[in-house]
């Protein structure tokens, strides 16, 4: 690479970084603005909007609601996804490829399509729009991710570990819980954090499957319709920090050998 092309590459890179971070920085900055209107010029900075956020009981209950949904759908997705990963990477049966395709399909379906499908289906099942429907919707969306990460991890587990456990007297259940599950744990924790973030962030499924109680993205959306205030920026900044930390942690855990 000549000096010339390297310089151009570096410029492209920094342009991309700016493109990515200017909107985020503006959003965070506006959350500290001492005025009701979002936009320049900024006369002085304040923590007022963060106080408003903390004291907003409705907002806190929305947070809790979103959080409950994220945790529940993640736990379900991990249980089902791990089971599917074990089945797909170890058992031999006819139509395995079809099972694999069906389990991973929700990951590639457009959100709006699966949201409408789930809405219709849950009503035929008699599940009213609300928390249960949202949790199940998020679970379906998250299972493929856990399955794929779990399968990748299982592939790297030496066959001899399980054989050694059996050799020393473990049956299938004991060798799963004492040998395979601990080996899978870092990958599952990573996948779990990722699932929580996806669930927390999801708008389309939550909007279609939710009842009167909104999840956080749905709540923010409804607030936007009645007019923007820096309170939205403060909420968004808090979410940004939490998700960034969790996302980075998940990425690290999944890469660990």
């Amino acid at each position: 690479m000549t000096r010339h092309t390297r310089l151009i590459m570096q410029m492209v890179y920094w342009a991309f970084v700016l493109y990515l971070f200017i909107p985020l920085s503006l959003m965070v900055l506006m959350g500290f603005k001492d005025s009701k209107f979002i936009g320049f010029p900024i006369k002085s900075l304040t923590l007022h909007w963060y106080k408003v956020v903390i004291q907003d009981l409705e907002l806190m209950s929305v947070f809790a609601y979103s959080f409950t949904i994220a945790i529940s759908s993640t736990v379900l997705a991990i249980i089902i996804g791990t089971w599917a990963a074990m089945l797909l990477s170890q058992a031999k049966f006819k139509g395995k490829i079809i099972v694999f395709a069906l389990i991973t399909l929700p990951a590639v379906l457009p959100g709006i399509i699966s949201a409408i499908a789930l809405r219709i289906y849950s009503q035929t099942l008699g599940i009213e729009p609300g928390m249960t429907a949202v949790i199940l919707g998020h679970t379906v969306h998250n299972v493929p991710f856990v399955t794929l990460v779990g399968m990748a991890r299982l592939n790297s587990q030496p066959m001899s570990h399980v054989e050694a456990a059996q050799d020393l007297g473990a049956d299938n259940v004991i060798s799963f819980f004492r040998i395979t599950l601990p080996y899978l744990t870092p990958a599952l924790v990573g996948a779990g954090i990722f699932c929580m973030l996806t669930s927390f962030d999801d708008f389309v499924r939550s909007f279609f499957l939710g009842g009167y109680e909104p999840t956080l993205p749905v709540y923010i959306f409804s607030q936007l319709r009645t007019g923007m205030s820096p309170e939205i920026n403060a909420i968004s900044s808090v979410v940004l920090v939490i998700t960034a930390v969790m996302g980075l942690a998940a990425e690290r855990l999944m890469r660990r050998k």
Partner: peptide, 12 residues
């Protein structure tokens, strides 16, 4: 009991 080629010690 068996001693495996890669020892198969449980890493955790």
């Amino acid at each position: 009991n068996m001693v495996f080629q890669d020892y198969a010690l449980f890493p955790h």
